[in-house]
Amino acid sequence: MSDLTRSDAPRPSVAARLPGLSALGPLLALILLVALGATLNENFLSAGNITNVLARSAFIGMIAVGMTFVITSGGLDLSVGSMAAFIAGVMILGMNALLPSMGVGLPLVLAGMGIALGVGLLAGLGNGLLVTKARIEPFIVTLGTMGIFRSLVTWLADGGTISLDFGVRQFYRPVYYSGLFGIAWPIIVFAIVAVAGQIAMRHTRFGRYCEAIGSNDKVALYSAVNVERIRLMTYVLLGLLVGLATIMYVPRLGSASGSTGMLWELEAIAAVIIGGTALKGGYGRVWGTVIGVLILSLIDNILILADLVSPYLNGTIQGVIIVLAVVLQRGKSSSA
């Protein structure tokens, strides 16, 4: 029998080691979009426009990175958009309330950031506990909390808008609008989150466990993986990232209302799926998610820059591109 072993020894081929074409589908779509944008408008590749697109992608982007882990482990979170609005509301109210005692300055802004991360953590923990301990379907849990967060922020705002004190806002504003070496802060933070996310997914136990649980949670359970804790952690991580996104979002317009973060959850989920993560879980690709987010932002940007179609049809173009991006991967992977 041992001689058979030798002859059957694994012989990895070079082709097998390269990432398949299907994996590069979203990247290809992104490159095509950039090329399209560049031919349609000469300002497309200007530093200003690129900064705009990247910076506005940052919020959804950070959230989508967190969403990648939730979806990879077989979960879903529909509440992130409302959660962002709620966190923004609480953060602004908190900062306004602390203003008389703390005055405008770094401590106040840090306190605001602390509030945002704290509320995000608690919100994520709430979702996670309902999913893992109460064993309710994530879809239902987060559909519920989506409504709860949304109505809470509307209530906090009295149906209107919660605005950050003008003086504080002036001080806090640079967190969105300025940056380091000409790169805006939201872009820097998003890049850090994305790189850390990619490493966590590929090179840590947490990422590996997320994939295992999403692939088959029974196998994970039988393999001594603390399934509940990992699931809980994905929701907490997502909550924290929503908090982080909110920290970058609030200085942009300095306000929160019932319409803040509307449909962010769907954009984040769409970005994750476009990026090649399986909606049913089991396989996650953080860099793909980043590309997905960029694709979504770019479509919007190009449609406005280019005057290609009636604005009524923007949604159609977006929908077609989203479906195409996914079909592109699917088609290639099944033939491979």
């Binding site: 136990r205 590996r208 466990y209 994939e211 295992a212 692939s215 088959n216 029974k218 196998v219 994970a220 359970l221 039988y222 393999s223 001594a224 993986v225 089991g282 396989y283």
Partner: peptide, 21 residues
């Protein structure tokens, strides 16, 4: 197939899953 191994994962990922630490 349902409780022992992750069928859509590689040999390595399956081998080390329970002792990843």
């Amino acid at each position: 197939k349902e409780r022992g191994l992750l069928l859509d994962k590689s040999l390595t990922e399956n081998l080390t899953l329970s002792t990843l630490a």
